[in-house]
Computed example of a mutant assay.
Amino acid sequence: MNENTIPQSRNDVAERIARRALESRGAHYQAEVRALLVAALKVMRGCGTASRPRVADVVAAAGLSNEAFYRHFRSKDALVAALMEDGAERLCGYLTHQMAKEPTPRGKVRRWVEGILAQAMDDDTAATTLAVMWNAGSVPEGFLAGPPSAAGMLATLLYTPYTELGSDNPELDASLAAHAAVGRLADHLWRRERPTPADVDHVTRFLLRTVDQEVGP
């Protein structure tokens, strides 16, 4: 019988081998991307706001090649955009966990404020966050989904608490709150000042004032 006339099995060997190869390559590429992101943070932390790192600096720190870099990112701007997205997702995950500990919407808002301002409370975290925000400021339109901040993602976490507190427009109120909180974080970062519990209280009261009738002036 000619091999071209042999019917394929439902679990074709060629398909299985190809699928395993793709899965292996995918895991390898994921490791490359993570190595580049980690290296970029390290290099940016070292440069601070004095200079912007080159692709060559990031590649060297990651122990990879230029080919590996451009396999995943078309430019350094694309890498910075990915860092912003990755950082925002990690922060949102942390905030979600912290907010879940609170039974009341006011408590959730306070936890949210605490988590954001906490990015300026540890020296290493503060330096890294400032460096990434500063680098993101030079990324041209098209690389980031919105303004160079995590405000968009962070705002979504306030939709439910603001709705429960009686906001007429929770999405808009949450967006304004997120921009205010991220702006305040940026102030602390640039001034190299650690937020105090009093700072957290003040920002929390400010963000609640327009939506929670129980919060005084």
Rank of each mutant, 00 (worst) to 15 (best):
M1Q: 05
N2L: 13
N2R: 14
N4Y: 15
I6Q: 13
N11V: 13
N11H: 15
V13P: 14
A14K: 12
A14G: 14
R16Y: 10
A18T: 12
R20M: 10
E23W: 02
R25N: 10
G26H: 11
A27S: 12
Y29Q: 14
E32Q: 15
E32V: 14
V33F: 03
L36C: 11
L36G: 09
V38G: 00
K42P: 00
C47W: 09
T49F: 01
A50W: 10
S51C: 14
S51A: 15
V55D: 02
A61L: 04
A62I: 09
A62Y: 08
S65E: 13
S65P: 08
E67P: 00
E67S: 11
E67A: 15
F69K: 05
R71Y: 09
R71I: 00
R71S: 12
F73M: 11
R74G: 11
S75K: 04
D77L: 00
A78G: 05
A82Y: 09
A82R: 14
E85H: 14
E85N: 13
A88S: 15
R90V: 14
L95M: 12
H97L: 13
H97E: 15
E102T: 06
T104M: 02
R106S: 07
K108L: 07
R111I: 00
W112A: 01
W112F: 06
V113F: 01
G115C: 09
L117H: 10
L117A: 08
A120I: 08
M121F: 02
M121D: 13
D122V: 12
D123Y: 10
A126W: 02
A127E: 13
T129K: 09
L130K: 03
W134Q: 06
N135R: 09
A136G: 15
V139E: 03
E141G: 04
G142Q: 02
L144C: 09
A145E: 11
P147E: 13
P148S: 06
A151K: 00
M153L: 13
M153E: 13
T156S: 13
L157M: 10
T160H: 06
L165C: 02
S167M: 01
S167W: 01
N169K: 06
N169C: 04
S175N: 07
A178R: 00
V182G: 02
G183A: 04
L185W: 07
A186R: 12
H188T: 06
H188I: 06
L189A: 05
E193G: 01
P195Q: 05
A198H: 09
A198Q: 09
V200N: 01
V200I: 15
D201G: 05
H202W: 10
T204K: 03
R205P: 00
F206V: 07
L207Q: 01
L208V: 05
R209F: 07
D212P: 02
D212F: 01
D212S: 03
D212T: 03
Q213Y: 08
V215S: 01
G216M: 10
P217I: 04
